[in-house]
């Protein structure tokens, strides 16, 4: 058993009695009360657990909890706050609002991971082509939407971001 210190969404957090085999995903969901990151496959194939680790999108199910020691994690629960640092805007990050407005959410289980991935892509590439969007989100499975409304949402978020500049 071990103690893990990690900064999550800007707040220093501490988890005790962590078994060495636990993933960052498990610690977030079951020990830190942040179940927004999802557990659809727990084998790094579906992207539903995507978080940013020191800024880089990762599958948190493939990160051992100990590997996160002393590092910065952003989850879907922190997206609005992260976006707020960039845009000083409302309660939701633009990409979150766009997913709602475009109808990109059905069951919603893939949504947190897609939002973290899409938000990171738009930070890097504010004016993505359709093929750029598809490439950036190809690690995130969705079973409900057929992806068309997800494409719409990311296009919408990009367009709103451009207007805001």
């Amino acid at each position: 058993m071990m103690r893990v210190n990690v900064t999550v969404n800007g707040r220093p957090q501490q988890a005790d009695d962590v078994w060495e085999g636990e993933s960052l995903l498990y610690v977030l969901r079951e020990r830190l009360g942040l179940p927004g990151s999802k557990n659809a496959c727990e084998q790094g194939e579906c992207g539903s657990c995507t978080v940013r680790l020191d800024g880089v999108p990762v599958c948190s199910c493939l990160v051992a909890a100990g590997q996160a020691e002393g590092r910065e994690v952003v989850t879907v629960e922190g997206l609005a706050q992260l976006a707020g640092r960039r845009t000083e805007d409302g309660e939701l990050a633009p990409v979150q609002q766009a997913f709602i407005d475009a109808g990109a959410v059905q069951c919603g289980f893939c949504t947190p991971g897609l939002l973290v991935a899409a938000d990171e892509m738009l930070e890097r590439n504010p004016n993505p082509s359709d093929e750029d969007i598809r490439e950036a989100l190809s690690g995130n499975l969705c079973r409900c939407t057929g992806y068309e409304k997800i494409m719409d949402a990311v296009r919408l978020a990009a367009a709103r971001q451009q207007e805001a500049v």
Partner: peptide, 23 residues
């Protein structure tokens, strides 16, 4: 009308509680 989902905000903020989130 294309009314938006009532659970949309909860689902994009990670607050919507799925069965695997029960604790």
């Amino acid at each position: 009308e294309s009314t938006l989902r009532p659970d949309g905000t909860l689902k994009v903020t990670g607050e919507f509680a799925y069965s695997s989130d029960m604790w």
